[in-house]
Design a binder for these strands. Structure first.
Length: 515
RNA sequence: GACCCCGUAGCUCAGUGGUAGAGCAUUUGACUUUUAAUCAAAGGGCCGAUGGUUCGAGACCAUCCGGGGUCACCA
């Protein structure tokens, strides 16, 4: 490893730098020796790359006689006393023309600039001989010297206008660990996150327009509840108590409905101490909303309107390509009962079957179940193995068995069921809703049953939250509650099949070794 | 947690037990409208880590680390 003797004072961290990075440090020193500040404080921009590219009219070049742009150098083509480079800003890329005659001082330091450095240019816009709208720089200034090498990909546009990328930065591990580089060099990544932002803001606007209240509830909770999942545990030193990172905010939002709000929602970061895969990250975002005096049927209509509207807003169409499927979010979505869908799949209505009967059905239909599985578990397996993967187009699955839903209200006409739906798309669950259970006697009985299940060894079962029960005893109006998995919604509306591609910084195992 | 695949230059990748390779990027030189710019030359490697087999290992074996995928659990 080469060590720059004159840079000895910069520190040990430099020992791991490669030749290109050491060269950049030398360039930085040279720039400073020439009296150039490689990190000036401000730059006044008048235009973005896309402003210029979209706005330039060959018949009215005077409209762009004075522009000022800044961006990161992504390509340089030096031809002696003239240089072309592409700079990239938030909006896109534009070519800049730098001529020695016009920029004698800047041209001196051009050799000390690299791909990755950020520059600002002032000048006029013109179209080159080869037809590209470009900025003719009359002034140029270095705004930031980059000390690391970007994994730069070359791009070419073929005669059909298709973009060909050569040797794109593709190593998924590096892309996730150094997302800032991914964002710089893989421009489609930015568009996914732009859509994510649009989905969330669109949802927020929809709720705001209805007059519902956005709230915040505790992330650190003395008891966790509202879902069946294992929590993360932490410790508060001053109080000397165990606290849990929330697995859901349901029980807090219902307390607010008890408190008199008639519509509350939260974009809720949840934490579940479970496995990770391409649809699960330990922390994820769930939007939960509770509306008083409404039921799950009403909520179905709202979900349809909301999601079809979001799809249109983000993609300009109700159709989306996902994992080889063409999905349509044109309302209305299909509605079917859970038992109806099972009957459709296996040709038998298993409503009211006991454990032994369900086991026979499972065996007959090649549904794998563990030997000690409960009746409910077998039922669940039949649904997930025979039905779930067939639910490609948006489908509301309605009316779940009461044992699977300890916080949902008993069905108004079907004993043994609750008023609940889940929205399935592309074989996975996107939203979950019930008419909320507000009968305090029933709610207590259901949570106590959960406590029994937990005592029997199911560590995902819910715990009894006495304060929540107290609130329900004070009295909660009839209420509909809904949760939408935001990460999954973003995945589907942006065509991404891995949750890691809709999170800026997905959870990764720590690296043991230095680079 | 189980199984399968992967880890070689800054990036993308070849490398069939016998001297460590290519393209881009970098450096030097030429070039005042180029665009994967071009032309000429050069530098750059703990081959993920540790052990083993072998006269000889980037390659074969074992273990570990990291990643991807499938499954299980879940949203």
């Amino acid at each position: 490893m080469k060590i720059l003797s004159k840079n000895k004072d910069i520190g040990m961290s430099l020992l791991h730098r490669n030749d290109q990075e050491l060269r950049r440090l030398e360039e930085l020193n040279e720039l400073r020796q020439h009296g150039i500040n490689p990190y000036p404080p401000v730059f006044e921009k008048t235009h973005s790359s896309v402003n210029v590219l979209n706005g330039f009219d060959d018949n009215k070049p005077e409209e762009f006689a004075q522009v000022s742009l800044a961006g990161r150098i992504m390509a340089i083509r030096k031809m002696g006393k003239a240089t072309f480079c592409h700079i990239q800003d938030d909006a896109g890329r534009i070519q800049v023309y730098l001529k020695k005659d016009d920029l004698p001082e800047f041209y001196e330091i051009l050799g000390n600039l690299d791909i990755g450095d950020i520059i600002g240019v002032k000048g006029h816009v013109f179209r080159t001989k080869t037809g590209e709208v470009s900025v003719y720089a009359k002034e140029a200034i270095l705004l930031c010297k980059s000390l690391r090498v970007l994994p730069i990909a070359k791009e070419e546009t073929d005669e059909n206008g298709n973009k060909i990328v050569y040797d794109a930065f593709a190593d998924k591990e590096l892309r996730y660990r150094r997302r800032y580089i991914d964002l710089i060099v893989n421009h489609e990544v930015k568009s996914v996150f732009a859509k994510r932002s649009k989905i969330i803001s669109g949802m927020r606007r929809y709720f705001e327009d209805k007059g519902w209240l956005e709230v915040e509830t505790p992330i650190l909770q003395p008891l966790y509840g509202g879902a069946t999942a294992r929590p993360f545990t932490t410790h508060h030193n001053a109080l000397d108590i165990e606290l849990y990172l929330r697995i859901a905010d349901e029980l807090y939002l219902k307390r607010l409905i008890v408190g008199g709000y008639e519509g509350v929602y939260e974009f809720c970061k949840n934490f579940r101490n479970e496995g990770m895969d391409r649809s699960h990250n330990p922390e994820f975002t769930l939007m939960e909303i509770y509306i008083a005096y409404k039921d799950y049927m009403w909520m179905m209509g709202m979900v349809e309107e909301l999601i079809s509207g979001l799809c249109l807003a983000v993609n300009g169409t109700h159709e989306v390509e996902y994992d080889g499927h063409k999905l349509s979010f044109q309302a209305p979505f299909r509605r079917a009962t859970m038992h109806g869908l099972i009957e459709e799949a296996i040709g038998e209505n298993i409503f009211g079957y006991d454990r032994d009967q369900l086991l026979v059905v499972a065996r007959k239909n090649n549904v794998e179940v563990e030997n000690n599985a409960s009746g409910m578990k077998i039922f669940d397996e039949i649904f997930s193995q025979k039905v779930e993967h067939t639910l490609i187009q948006p489908t509301f699955v309605m009316d779940y068995p009461v044992e699977m839903s300890p916080l949902a209200k008993a069905h108004r006409s079907e004993p043994g069921l609750v008023e609940r739906f889940e929205l399935y798309v592309a074989g996975t669950e996107l939203a979950n809703c019930f008419t909320e259970l507000n009968d305090p006697i029933d709610q207590r009985a259901r949570l106590e049953e959960q406590a029994r299940v937990k005592a029997a060894g199911d560590d995902e079962a819910m715990v009894v939250d006495e304060d929540f029960l107290y609130a329900i005893e004070v009295g909660m109006p009839p209420t509909a509650g809904l949760g939408i998995g935001i990460d999954r919604l973003v995945m589907i509306l942006t065509g991404q099949t891995s949750i890691r591609d809709v999170l800026f910084f997905p959870q990764m195992k720590p690296e043991k070794q230095h680079h």
